[in-house]
C-alpha cells in the first residue's frame, strides 16, 4: 500500500485519482508513525520549493523520511525536495541527492515555465519498465535538477539537458507528472508500486 506524504504542498487529488484508476490502495502520511503503515511512499508537491520544504519541516517528517529503506518516489517539487539545495527561495532541501535545483536560464531562449509534453530519454530502470524510450511525459516547472550521471536515470532537453528522473538506492524521483502523463505515466506509477526494497 502506498503512503502519500500529506504536508500541504499543492493538490493531491489528481494523484489519488490516478492511483484509484490503477486500483492501487493508498493512504495519507501525516506523522512519523504513519510511515510504518505503508510499503511505498510518494512525496508529491506543486508550487514553491522553498515554501514546500518549510511545510515539510513543520510536519517533523524530514529525518524519518531520510532514514526510510522502503521505495520512495518524489514527484515534481517532491523531487526537488530530495536535492541538496534549491535556487527557488535559496532553500536547503533534504540532501538525499547531492544535487542542485536550478532556475531555467532565460538567456537560452526558452519559455519559462517548461510546460507540456517532452520526450524522456531513460536508462534501463524498473521505473520505466514497459514504457517506450523517448515517450513524452507532462512537465510543468520553472526549476530543474542538474544532470549528474551518478544519479540520473532519465534525461530531457529544454535549453539544457537535465534530469527527468533520478535514483539513489530506494529513493526515486521524477520531474514530470506521471498522474498527468497519459498511459505512460500510469504505467510508471504501477511500476513504482511493484518495486521491492
Amino acid at each position: 500500500m502506498i503512503g502519500i506524504v500529506n504536508y500541504g504542498a499543492g493538490n493531491i487529488f489528481s494523484l489519488t485519482s490516478a492511483l484509484q484508476r490503477l486500483q492501487l490502495a493508498y493512504g495519507m502520511v501525516d506523522t512519523e508513525a504513519d510511515l510504518d503503515k505503508y510499503s511505498h511512499i510518494i512525496i508529491p508537491g506543486v508550487g514553491h520549493a522553498g515554501t514546500a520544504m518549510k511545510k515539510l519541516e513543520q510536519t517533523g517528517l524530514v529525518e524519518p523520511l531520510k532514514k526510510l529503506q522502503k521505495p520512495v518516489l518524489g514527484i515534481c517539487v517532491g523531487m526537488q525536495l530530495l536535492t541538496r539545495h534549491s535556487e527557488e527561495g535559496d532553500a536547503d532541501m533534504m540532501n538525499i541527492f547531492p544535487l542542485e535545483t536550478k532556475l531555467f536560464d532565460k538567456e537560452k531562449h526558452i519559455k519559462i515555465p517548461h510546460m507540456g509534453w517532452n520526450n524522456v530519454n531513460f536508462k534501463n530502470n524498473l521505473l520505466f519498465e514497459g514504457v517506450e524510450n523517448q515517450t513524452q511525459f507532462y512537465f510543468v516547472h520553472s526549476y530543474f535538477i542538474e544532470y549528474n550521471p551518478i544519479f540520473d536515470i532519465a534525461t530531457v532537453d529544454y535549453g539544457v539537458q537535465f534530469s527527468a528522473a533520478i535514483q539513489k538506492d530506494n529513493f526515486y524521483a521524477v520531474q514530470f507528472h506521471p498522474e498527468k502523463s497519459g498511459a505512460a505515466g500510469e504505467r510508471l506509477l504501477k511500476n513504482f508500486s511493484t518495486i521491492t526494497p
Binding site: F13, S14, S17, A18, Y138, V140, G182, G185
Partner: peptide, 11 residues
C-alpha cells in the same frame, strides 16, 4: 471538475 479529474490522465 472533480469528476473530470478522477477520470482524466492528461492536464
Amino acid at each position: 471538475v472533480k469528476a473530470v479529474a478522477r477520470e482524466l490522465n492528461i492536464p
